[in-house]
Design a protein around this nucleic acid. Sequence first.
DNA 1: ATGGTAGAGATTCTA
Length: 261
Amino acid sequence: MKIATFNINGVRARIETLTGWLSEAEPDVVVLQEIKCQDEGFPREPIADLGYNIETHGQKGFNGVAILSKLPLEDVTRGLPGDDTDEQARYIEATVVGHRALRVAGLYLPNGNPQPGPKFDYKLAWMQRLHDHARQLLATEMPVLMMGDYNVIPEARDAARPEKWLDDALFRPESRAAFRRILHQGWIEAVRLRDADGSRGPFTFWDYQAGAWQRDDGIRIDHVLLSPQAADLLIDLGIDRDERAKDKPSDHVPVWVDLDA
DNA sequence: ATGGTAGAGATTCTA
């Protein structure tokens, strides 16, 4: 089963980019971030026509996440637990039943800039809530995938030019430490299973500005975290880097895993 | 040191 994460940066503005990739890559399950629309504005029809069930958690203008699946989605939950006053649509979770049941979480972690400030405080508080919930997910002993745009550059080798990110919320020590604290519960970063050495990259995001793509001035901020039970099922993984060179691209590219599930 | 781009929706914010 092929399961992907893709920050689409506006699903209505980029519906042809999305359907083109879905047709080519043929993922079974996709978590989307930054749909930037409300549930009723989501372009369901062209995606349903490709055989996907659709569950959305949107809001007006910003943020918004969704899960697409060729298999039925069960027990869908919306919003990250831990703060009933949080109105930002950044988290969705569902069970996908193939010949094995998987729990899939799609998340859009707060950017946190500028830092320091209230947005950075919100990012760190959100990461603490994710940490608490991630522990509960591991305790289920199901195969779990916790994937999405983490807005965290884990290490210097995850940036083409780490020096320019030193004062950015994506690379601050507090953000990186919070990400590590989640990993240390026992999650496995899929990409690093196959690329564990010290070489630079691969990247998943290139800014639209200043020719970042042309200079390969990228960062790796879209991550797939696997529970041990999910990691045991891993067959293959990839980053669809070529999507960034196509017409009307998102600034992020898809990251996917293939599991024996 | 600055500005460079993009989407949504309102004349600015978020990234």
